[in-house]
């Protein structure tokens, strides 16, 4: 990827990023040399940037699909559908004085958004089942342990099964969650935090040497 920016501009951007990062880090460590208003202002800017990025994302999506429709690219009809729905929802929000709490917006949420999202999420169960058929096999190496763990967790998370499952099994799962699983989760948390830190540093300094 080529950059058309000058080296001077790049260095200026880098300086601003480093300055902001240093101020935030210093304020989080409680160093008194950073006035609280500075870090608060920076946090406020982050919020503004987030909102602006959202608008940019919407504009970019609309532009992308407009171009697809204009050029008649593959599946342009779906892009057209997206644009129509976008215009309708936007119109529903703008046309009502109540905004997102207006009657039409609320109806769209109740009749389209909520059932649509819930349906898509419910398909996760099917994907889970399919993945279980593929990977949770008893005859795979270690498969029995993985399968037993998965079924055990499902058992103890299902209230009506407490009538079937003995208390000792529930106590066993409680112990598993409180000790070995928690130890593993702490390791995962620490390890992932360190990994993110080092990968971030590596990306920043391009440490591929």
């Amino acid at each position: 990827m080529y950059s058309s920016r000058s080296g001077w501009l790049n260095r200026t951007v880098l300086f601003i990023v480093l300055a902001c990062a240093s101020l935030i880090v210093a304020s989080r460590f409680g160093l008194t040399l950073v006035p609280p208003v500075v870090s608060t202002t920076l946090y406020g800017w982050a919020l503004l940037l987030g909102a602006f990025a959202l608008l940019l994302g919407i504009a970019n999506t609309v532009r992308f699909h407009l171009v697809r429709v204009q050029r008649g690219q593959r599946e342009w009809l779906l892009s057209l559908l997206l644009l129509i729905v976008f215009a309708l929802v936007l119109g529903a929000g703008i046309s009502s004085p109540e905004g997102t709490t207006g009657l039409l917006s609320e109806w769209i949420f109740d009749a389209v958004v909520a059932p649509g999202q819930a349906t898509l999420y419910a398909l996760t169960g099917i994907f889970l089942l399919s993945a279980a058929y593929h990977f949770l096999r008893i005859d795979r190496p270690g498969g029995l342990w993985i399968l037993a763990g998965a079924v055990l967790m499902l058992f103890v998370q299902t209230p009506f099964l407490y009538r079937i499952v003995p208390d000792s099994l529930i106590d066993l799962v409680d112990w598993l969650l409180s000790w070995p699983v928690m130890a593993a989760m702490r390791g995962v948390l620490l390890g992932s935090a360190l990994a993110v830190l080092f990968i971030s540093l590596r990306l920043i300094v391009n440490g591929t040497k």
């Binding site: 169960g125 889970l128 089942l129 279980a132 058929y133 949770l136 096999r137 008893i138 005859d139 399968l147 998965a150 079924v151 499902l154 058992f155 998370q157 299902t158 209230p159 009506f160 099964l161």
Partner: peptide, 27 residues
């Protein structure tokens, strides 16, 4: 709602167990 969730998870458990047994038997 709780009962529906129970049934859903129950179906999942049954499907995973039966599917594994059937697959094992088939292989």
């Amino acid at each position: 709602l709780v009962s529906g969730q129970n049934w859903g998870v129950g179906i999942l458990i049954v499907a995973v167990l039966l599917g594994n047994l059937a697959g094992l038997n088939q292989r």
